[in-house]
Measured scan of single mutants.
Amino acid sequence: EDPKKEILLAMLMVDKEKKGYVMASDLRSKLTSLGEKLTHKEVDDLFREADIEPNGKVKYDEFIHKITL
């Protein structure tokens, strides 16, 4: 499956209130437990690539855009 789609799906599952962003810690939890599970190192690399703080907010569109360039 398309990794971009899988990450967006994980974000939507976490963002039940439809705020347009999720906490990095919640996204990490989903990405390491769903679908093609990522390792913590892979998530760290994704966050670093997208300039996301480990305890920060992750906005869908910015995150998807940064990791798919």
Score class of each variant (00 low, 15 high):
D26S: 05
H65S: 13
M23N: 15
L69T: 13
P54W: 02
S25M: 01
Y21T: 11
A10P: 09
K59I: 05
I67C: 10
G35V: 10
V43R: 05
A10M: 03
F63V: 11
I64T: 04
N55Q: 08
D2P: 07
L12G: 13
D2Y: 07
K16Y: 03
K19C: 11
L12V: 07
G35D: 12
S33D: 11
P54I: 03
E17Q: 10
M11V: 03
I7C: 07
E17W: 07
L69P: 15
L8N: 07
H40D: 10
E42Y: 08
L8Q: 09
D2K: 02
E1R: 12
G20V: 00
K16T: 06
R28M: 03
E42I: 00
G56K: 08
D51C: 07
K41W: 07
P54D: 10
F63C: 04
E17D: 15
E42C: 06
D61Y: 06
F47A: 02
I7K: 15
S29G: 08
T68W: 09
S33K: 10
K66R: 11
A24T: 08
I67G: 08
D26A: 05
M23G: 10
A10W: 07
E49I: 07
H65K: 14
S25E: 08
K41L: 07
D51V: 04
K57S: 11
L9A: 14
V14W: 07
L69V: 11
L69E: 10
K19G: 09
R48T: 08
D44S: 02
D15M: 11
E62M: 00
I64F: 06
Y60T: 07
L12C: 10
D15K: 07
S25W: 00
E49D: 01
D26I: 00
F47G: 02
K59R: 08
E1D: 03
A24W: 03
D61W: 01
T32G: 09
V58E: 00
R48C: 04
L38I: 03
A24V: 02
E17P: 14
G35I: 05
L8E: 09
G56I: 02
F47Q: 04
G20D: 14
I7F: 11
D51Y: 03
V14Y: 06
K18D: 10
K57T: 12
M11R: 12
L31M: 08
K57C: 11
D61L: 08
I64A: 07
H40Y: 12
K57E: 12
D51F: 03
E53K: 12
D15G: 08
